[in-house]
Write a protein that binds this DNA or RNA. Structure first.
Lengths: 190, 190
DNA sequence: TGCCGAGGTCAACGGGTGTTGGCATACAGT
DNA sequence: ACTGTATGCCAACACCCGTTGACCTCGGCA
């Protein structure tokens, strides 16, 4: 992913139109109900274009979830601020684009979605945790606890949209969740 | 729901066979990928029987998720034990049968699934919280925080099956999550 | 100007879906 | 024993899906 560049081929505009439409459809409908036909209609082109450029529906989905979740540099951070920084960063990620929403929606029913979710967990969250936990041996467990709280909040707030969770301000979410995350990483094992 | 009774009609055995098969299919495949034909095959009958007894696929799903989550009586409980009791009870619920798993799997993509999930939240969790929170005005918010942690753990442990989360013992889950839940309900607002 | 390939449309295929109506069978009540 | 009804199966319908291949239409180049 090199981000924005000037289109070298004429078809690039169509390519990204498909990708944008796919992002929204997968995010709001999940994998099964997001049909190739609907995505093509949103992008204003023929369904066969989707196949030409992405090979198959599965290939299109792979392109959608192929993004890097750039984790913040935590190396010289006050360990007491870990909870606040992590929760704030996660809120940013969830609100910036739709890819995590897509991943969560799809990961619950689709194998390649949950694979990718596990992969993000293992390559991004676990290593970050490893640098701060008291005992590296249980870094995975502590990362899983953090994931449970963060994904759970994302679930009720952005996907299921429970009223009280969706209405909370960012500050309140951080204020409530940061101590939890902080404890999961740095506290003594109970 | 009167529970177990002697079958009055000959078809009751088929009825429950369909329901059992549907429970498993919906729980493991989600709504879209659980086909009427596959459910009927599992139940050993013809797909048209499903329609005769439950009207439609949607009606069958409604029957599957029409269950009461009997909440424990918390009225004379030591408020300090709230976290432990709640987390333990939730683990029981998730491990006893598949209905919550179904609800979570389906609620993420299907409207009637997430409706039911919101309904369970509003009629079971919020009232329970109302009895213990310092200020009844924010009972909903505190209940939402509890839901975020509990559903999040269920998500990574039972649905996504993140290794470290799935491998934790019940005691460890309770030991880690109970203080979080306790704080969400009884602690001063930050 | 003539050509050629890239970009795009169109119609169709094979398969799977939820759902329906007709027909057989076994049972219960008289 | 006879009959009406509950129970079940079978075949088909209409629809939607992902995917394919044949065809058209431009823009750039010799």
């Amino acid at each position: 992913m090199t981000g924005s560049e000037v289109p070298r081929r004429r078809s690039d505009v169509t390519r990204t139109a498909i990708l944008d439409a796919a992002r929204e459809r997968f995010a709001s409908d999940g994998y099964e109900r997001a049909t190739v036909r609907a995505i093509a209609r949103d992008a204003g082109i023929d369904p066969s274009m989707v196949m030409r450029y992405y090979g198959s529906k599965e290939g299109l989905f792979a392109a959608v979830i192929d993004v890097e979740l750039d984790f913040p540099d935590l190396s010289e951070l006050d360990p007491d601020q870990l909870g606040v920084v992590l929760v704030t960063h996660f809120l940013d990620l969830w609100e910036r684009d739709t890819v995590l929403r897509t991943l969560l929606r799809v990961g619950v029913t689709n194998a390649s979605g949950s694979d990718r979710l596990r992969q993000v967990f293992a390559t991004q969250l676990v290593p970050a945790a490893r640098a701060f936990v008291p005992d590296p041996a249980d870094a995975e467990r502590r990362a899983a606890l953090v994931a449970s709280q963060v994904l759970g909040m994302a679930l009720v707030r952005y996907v299921l949209q429970f009223g009280p969770a969706a209405d909370m301000s960012r500050q309140d979410v951080v204020a409530w969740l940061a101590p939890t995350v902080q404890r999961y990483i740095t506290a003594e094992a109970p």
